[in-house]
Design a protein around this nucleic acid. Sequence first.
DNA 1: ATGATTTCCTGTAGGC
DNA 2: TGCCTACAGGAAATCA
Length: 279
Amino acid sequence: MPELPEVETVARGLRQALVGRTLAAVTLHRPDLLRTDPALFLAELPGRTVAGVRRRGKYLLIDLTSPDREALTWLVHLGMTGQLLVLPAAVPLQSHTHLQVDFVPAGRQLRYRDPRRFGFWALLPTAQVEKEPPLVHLGPEPLEMSLADFQAVMGRQRGGLKALLLNQRVIAGVGNIYADEALFAAGLHPRQRAEELRPVHLRRLYEALQRVLRAALAAQGSSIDAGYVSVEGRPGNYQDQHQVYGRTGHPCRHCGTAIQHTVVASRSTHFCPRCQRRK
DNA sequence: ATGATTTCCTGTAGGC
DNA sequence: TGCCTACAGGAAATCA
């Protein structure tokens, strides 16, 4: 599932491939993924130049400028199985390709494919994009937070740690994989209540989250069942370093205890019952 | 206010 | 081998 490290890897790939390029034809095979009027989308994109590619939480922001029109930002959420690929136009269309964009000069295409279609797109004025839904509700970026920021944010939360890490309004960009991995790295139980933690535990969680997200980013993210891939179609490598996610029944790499699987916050949850005790 | 439940969707894994 | 069911989950709405 694309979470912060995967979306950031895609953002970097798109930046490298697309910044400075001008959009030509846009083909919408599945207009229902668009939360903006499809006619507006099709009318506004051609002729615009990719001015930049950013990431906010799990959202990709593709900034599109024009000499005589208001700057717009194309917002993309990859959902569960969304992929943004930059491929030679000659490569045959893969199944579940819902959108394709040609560029000037012709050659490579940007394609969005998403078998499960949990992803979505929107087109918003760049000046407003961070002031409106869906971005306006997002919590801070974990990799841009200081320890003091993190303690301030988590310190006023109540509830289970896993649910809080998954809540995009609390912290943006953490999904099911990195919530489980960060909690293991911090030695904290997924059901541990935040209000019962001491500052030292919040510091451990902060450091664990930083460490896990940075390591995952360095490995270009996690790919499970070929779900997530980079813009070149390459899977990530961080799944090989997972300590708990997807390791149900396997021995904990730290203590040898069998990794347990349960449901927390309505999400499949993996943890080591010995290394992650409630405080 | 918090957490659980439901909806969207389809490929895959597991059972029989 | 083939069919069927359960499961995976991000976001948002709804319910308890």
